[in-house]
Design a protein around this nucleic acid. Structure first.
Lengths: 112, 112
DNA sequence: ATCATCGTGCGAAAATTGTCGAACGATTGA
DNA sequence: TCAATCGTTCGACAATTTTCGCACGATGAT
């Protein structure tokens, strides 16, 4: 039972800052990254249950090609996880800082 | 001698991560930010001596409106500096991490 | 085998962004 | 005053990105 879908990922040293920043500059993708950071590996559909599938594929592909996430096929679904270690090795603290500074999604007022 | 040109800047708490990341995701603007980090306040024309003025204005305006730089008029020129403190207060370590990870990128013709 | 579900690729349309010439006002120096 | 320089705005165009319907192959369940 060979893996049906094979995904291309950039090597650690191929991950480029501009592409990562661009990937994270989209609020929708940033919320996806936040969910991935909180839940670990998730089914792709959880990242956007209300989105058209082709739109979801577009964003997950962009995140994958920029080196932000790792994607693997599991049966007919698609599991996605954040490349924490690779990103941390390449750009220490970046993801934490970005996610920490992105509270504006929820209308919660809590600033210290 | 009232200041001729007045520039609008977002407050510190108005600086939003997606806009900052988008501003930094452009290689040209990222190289501008690096120059600003190295030299401090610089004349706007130093950020792109070979660029058409309107293109230069476009990028500096985007950097200003996203909260990355502070712009002030000095005579007929335009001085620009990085909002180090504000960015550090809002997203600790972000600029350092980004600039640190952008050294090995293709040195187009900016590095001299 | 049949059918429903999932992700992907294709293609097109809409929206956003980047580039840049031209005109304009402001400033500086002569 | 006059001319040169600078930054901005406007407008148009090119390039990129986003959205999404559709058809297709693969997978899992009946």
């Amino acid at each position: 039972m060979a893996p049906a879908r094979v995904y291309q990922h950039p090597e650690v040293d191929e991950i480029a800052i501009p592409r990562v920043l661009f990937a994270l500059s989209e609020p929708l993708r940033l919320s996806m990254v936040r969910m991935l950071a909180e839940r670990g590996e998730v089914d792709s559909i959880e990242l956007g249950p209300d989105l058209p599938r082709s739109t979801l594929t577009h964003h997950t592909s962009l995140l994958r090609e920029s080196g932000v996430v790792f994607v693997r096929a599991e049966g007919r679904k698609c599991l996605i996880r954040l490349r924490d270690d690779d990103l941390e090795a390449r750009f220490p603290g970046l993801i934490d800082t970005v996610l920490n500074g992105y509270q504006e999604a929820a209308p919660t007022q809590e600033d210290a």
